[in-house]
Write a protein that binds this DNA or RNA. Structure first.
Lengths: 202, 202, 202, 202
DNA sequence: TATGAATGAGAGTTCATTCAT
DNA sequence: AATGAATGAACTCTCATTCAT
């Protein structure tokens, strides 16, 4: 059976998941540049060829890493935002749960930052292409929500969304520099700040 | 005369400046990891050895890039912040002039973000560590200023500084994705947002 | 399977042996400094990366070369020395079999002399330090033996051992200059000479 | 005036001598491989081009180094051998003064060993070509002398000369490993040894 | 004569990828 | 499906040499 067909065997799916996980750990530990295929394979206890066999190229593997992190992240965050009683609470939930995700999945975030930082051609291609926009749009939706309900002041949702997304993502990097950072308190402060920045003045 | 002495020839100074500039452009265009010595040298129209001759190693070249960008950036921004009549105006000036710098020096900022984002080995060491912190502290100073004058509300200056720094830096990346972005308007919006976020409520 | 584990495949063992052999020949032919990885690989008919793959670094390859030459050499020489009826006969055997080894393995000796003569950094460290000393000590043991049995005169075993070792090693170089050298006769003369130099006067 | 003509100016001669001396020191200190033209030039306080200007190539510089060391060595040793009352005393003088030269000119010897060890193509070319033979022949002459006077036993002068030359040269290397070596005592022992090896038995 | 900027080849090493088994 | 040996290009860096000034 063609490996890249959608019709995957169980073992195939498991291998891919395992390799993606090892890639995340390897990138988080050594940084993108030093996380070679050989090291990722070694961490999975398999030979180098296996990755090529299952993913075709390193680029595809990285794309899967990104997709996985994004998916897992969304599943951890979105429900809390949706469950919020309003946009203001939703924005706070988005920030708090996002930081909570960073706190509980440091390797995921670290890997993500490494991959994004690596960049590649600036033309907007690269493994993270699209996901960045999507992440910004998720924030933007909450801001729209709040504008419609009148909870938020008049503001450029794009600008605020970009700023908030950046502020959250920056924490993964800060965490590398200050491992003892109190992310819970940090989240509260950040939520307060964006609350002030967005709410309708009294 | 030893190349690395302070007493440099005119031609030596010119070459170093040219190479630093080419490095900035190369990093901005291809990203840090893919900006090889060969590509930088080719962009300058010289052979690879020239970089080693003038800088000793790639690391030293990058250090010079960082030093140059930091210096040029500070000179463009700090005076405006200092000239502001108060902290609130200072914060706005910091944001506006920062975006203006990004608008007029897109490659500089893109390169800087690339270099700082990388930050070297995962452990946070590396030759560029500290520049990110310094940039954050510059923001933090303005926030302290405003707290002392009573212009700003009670807030965690660290958190806000990190968020603002990230929000500004993110624009360099956004600009790559959306070259037609109206940075002037963007800057006004961002300034408004952080004004709301920091000012003392009425 | 990790390449550097002890549990090696047949093909792995064969390649390593082949590469060590090619390294010996290359060093013997061009001298240590000019025996580059590229030349060694070319001699083996493989690409440069193969050496890194099997040995990790040039240094490790050279270590294997030294280990191989030392082992093969010892196995060819030591038994004859041990089998000798006494120290005087042992010393003669050491010289004769050593020259015989040079005659039958000219590249081995030439390579060994190259490697030991270099010895790494000037300070005497480096990965090959010690092998020269070990070779001298092997000679010294025979001299001690003869002093204990009373076969040899009172002498400084260190001085004589260094001299004999040097005299033997020099032949590998001489052989390069005079390929037609009669090593058998040479060995007899050398043995005679050191016999005179060491035996107890009548 | 052509630089390479025999008719050299005083300043030209002085420069060459200075450069040769710096080359000796550089090679002795860093080893042949790491004694680059740049380092040698830096040690002389001149620019790289100067060496090429005066010597044409590194090879020629090294040849001059060898020639210088050989000449200085000969001048230090030969008179003492000639002044000896007979071949036996001459041989002893050759050994003693040779070791004395090593003791008083460690950089010279260290450089010499480095150059010889480096070897180059084994075909007998290289900067030391010829000098090695000449050095052996110098020893051989003394041995012939002693055979003619009947002071020495019947022996193969070539073999003994090679052995003695090697034994002496080996000391420079030993000296690197054991800097505290007592060369005076060493010389006496070596002289004794070769006296036993060569003299007519009673 | 001397400088120092520049060249271009070659060094060891890493790595994504391929492929016979 | 998986192995692991091999490739070949790319990397940074060093160095002897050249040459305009």
């Amino acid at each position: 059976m063609n490996v890249h067909s959608d019709n995957q065997t169980f073992i195939e799916t498991a291998r891919r998941a395992q390799l993606v996980d090892c890639a995340i750990q390897a990138i988080a530990e050594w940084g993108y540049a030093r996380a070679s295929m050989a090291k990722i394979a070694a961490r999975a206890g398999v030979s180098t060829g296996v990755i090529s066999y299952h993913f075709g190229s390193k680029e595809e593997l990285i794309e899967q890493v990104v997709a996985t992190v994004v998916t897992v992240g969304k599943e951890a965050i979105e429900p809390h935002v949706r469950a919020a009683g309003g946009a203001r609470a939703g924005l706070r939930a988005l920030i708090i749960t996002n930081l909570d995700f960073i706190r509980t999945h440091p390797a995921y975030m670290r890997a993500m930052v490494e991959i994004i930082a690596r960049g590649g051609p600036v033309d907007g291609s690269g493994p993270y292409a699209g996901h960045g926009d999507a992440a910004i749009e998720d924030v933007q939706k909450v801001l729209h929500w709040g504008q419609q309900t009148g909870e938020f002041r008049h503001l450029d949702t794009r600008v605020v969304a970009v700023a908030l997304r950046a502020a959250i993502d920056a924490i993964a990097t800060r965490l590398s520099a200050e491992p003892d950072l109190d992310l819970v308190r940090y989240g509260e402060q950040l939520a307060d700040m964006f609350d002030f920045a967005t709410r309708k003045g009294q």
